[in-house]
Simulated scan of single mutants.
Amino acid sequence: MSSLRHTADPRLDGYLDVARECILDLGWRRTTLTEVARRADVSRMTIYRAWPDMGALLGDLMTREWVGIAAAIGRAAADTTTPAGIAEAALATVRALRDNGLFVRIVELDPDLMLPYLLHRRGRSQEALVEILAAEIESGQASGAIRQGDAVPMARALTLGAHGFVFSALTMTDDRVSLADLDAEYVRAVTRALEP
Rank of each mutant, 00 (worst) to 15 (best):
G55N: 01
A56W: 06
L57F: 08
L57N: 03
L61R: 14
T63F: 12
V67D: 07
G68H: 05
G68E: 02
I69E: 12
A70W: 05
A70V: 09
A78E: 15
D79R: 12
T82V: 11
G85D: 04
G85W: 09
I86H: 00
A87P: 11
E88L: 01
T93E: 07
V94K: 00
V94Q: 06
A96H: 04
L97H: 11
L102H: 12
F103V: 10
V104M: 13
L109G: 11
D110I: 01
L113Q: 00
L113Y: 01
M114P: 05
P116S: 03
H120N: 09
R121W: 04
R122F: 07
A128P: 02
V130S: 02
V130K: 01
V130W: 06
E131K: 01
E131L: 11
E131M: 03
A135V: 04
I137C: 02
G144K: 08
Q148V: 06
M154G: 00
M154E: 01
A155V: 06
A157D: 00
A157H: 05
L158Q: 03
L160I: 13
A162C: 09
G164K: 05
G164P: 04
S168K: 12
S168L: 15
A169M: 12
M172V: 04
M172H: 15
T173S: 10
D175T: 12
V177D: 07
S178K: 00
A180V: 11
A180L: 06
D181T: 11
L182T: 01
D183N: 11
E185A: 14
V187S: 06
R188D: 05
R188K: 14
R188P: 04
